[in-house]
Structure formats: C-alpha cells, structure tokens
Design a protein around this nucleic acid. Sequence first.
DNA 1: CCCTGATTCGC
DNA 2: GCGAATCAGG
Length: 239
Amino acid sequence: MSWTDERIEKLTKMWEGGATASQIAEELGGVSRNAVIGKAHRLDLKARPSPVKANDKPAAARPAAPKKVKPVEAAPTPPRAPEPQAETPPAPSFQRAAPPVAPESPAPRAAEPVAAPASDTPAPVSDRPRVVSVGPGGFLRQGPGDQQQPIPPAPPRRLIPAKPSAEIAGKTSLLDLNDRVCRWPMGHPGEPDFHFCGDKVNPGFPYCVDHCGRAYQAQLPRGARRAPPPLPFGGPRVR
DNA sequence: CCCTGATTCGC
DNA sequence: GCGAATCAGG
C-alpha cells in the first residue's frame, strides 16, 4: 500500500483527532502501526502524549543508548505552565468503543444550565459567565475574563427501587433470596420470568423439601445401581 | 503480558 | 520515503 493523498488525509485527521496509531492502521488497512507512526512523524504530525516521552527527567541517565546519540534537545524544559490550549476543540473521537448514540435522553437545550434542578435558585444572570457563543457539542464559550462557575454539587437524590417486571411480580427474585427460602431456580437466567422457588426451605438445606428431592438422591447399594438410560442429544429440559 | 508513541536505520 | 525492529513508559 502506498500513501495516497486520501490515506494521508485520513491519517492526519485521525491522528489529530486522537486516534491511536493502531486504530489508524487498522482503519487504513494494509499498513502497520509502525508505518502509521513513521508516516505521522515524517508529516511532522507528532506532539501527542507519548507514554514514553511524557516523563522527561532532566538528568535521568540514559544508559541504554546503543544506537546513535541523538542531538541534544532543547534546553531543560521550563516548568510546564498550564498552556492555553483552549483553541483546541474537543476533536472528534475515533475511539473504538464510542457508540455515538444517545437513545432516549432529550437533547439538552443549549444556553441552559443542564444540571440545574428546578428547586435550585438559578444564579442571577449577572453571576453567570457571559455566554459569547455556543461551541460544538453545545458547550458554552465564555468571554476572556469570565471564569467557570463552580459546578454546584448534585442535589441528593432519592433512590427508588426499580419496578420489577410484571412477569416476576410476587415471585422470588435474586434479591429476595435468603437462607430461609428455597433457591431452586425456576426457568433460566435471562428469561423474563426467571425467578426462584421461594418456598420455605427444608431446614439445613438450601431448597424446599420438594426440591431437595430433586437435588439430592439417596446413595443406592452397589447392586441396585443401574446405568442411566442414554439421553437423546441435548436431553429434555429438566424443570 | 498487553498497550502506547519515539527512534533508528537498512532498504 | 518507507516501515520493521527496537526502545521505553504505562
């Protein structure tokens, strides 16, 4: 594979968007991660947080330099002040696990404090940061002198139990299990009506008397044992 | 071990 | 210019 214009463009976009070299290589196809990194450097695309270079100790001896000695870099890095990186917008993410779906939640209207509950007294307009414009993703750009309001702590929320599905209403659910009720499963996990027997246990056993009869079998004397008949493939479901 | 980016160097 | 091999940190 060669570096066509399109491929270079894709590489550049993804690299600047924060995708890893592996992801870019996979996306482009036909190239290795190393090829992507090499190309990115040749394009002068670097300057991204490197796990290796992030920590540059000034005088840390580098004993392992069997290859060529690289020219001494710039003078000792001055203490890194919070560089104004405000101009870099939240670049599009190319992360794999980023499903861009937000199924049911209504899109928050811009220019309105999203997390402000109705009960809270809204901050006076004069106290709010002056909104200059709405940026991508709905975040609010502020004026140069404006400072981000401290985010008010989330109000305490009352947790209410999730409503059990109708199928298991009145049945013994996993959370209802204790050592006094029979934990014989009824149905199969994942089924909507999966639950547990829930009868009073046979004391000393995890199951009720009935299900103890299913769970335990008396050891028969040697002569009386019979080989169990072969089951059809898959066997019948035992309930 | 896995991952990451950086660097080197033969091609 | 290219990219495998290697290095080095997380």
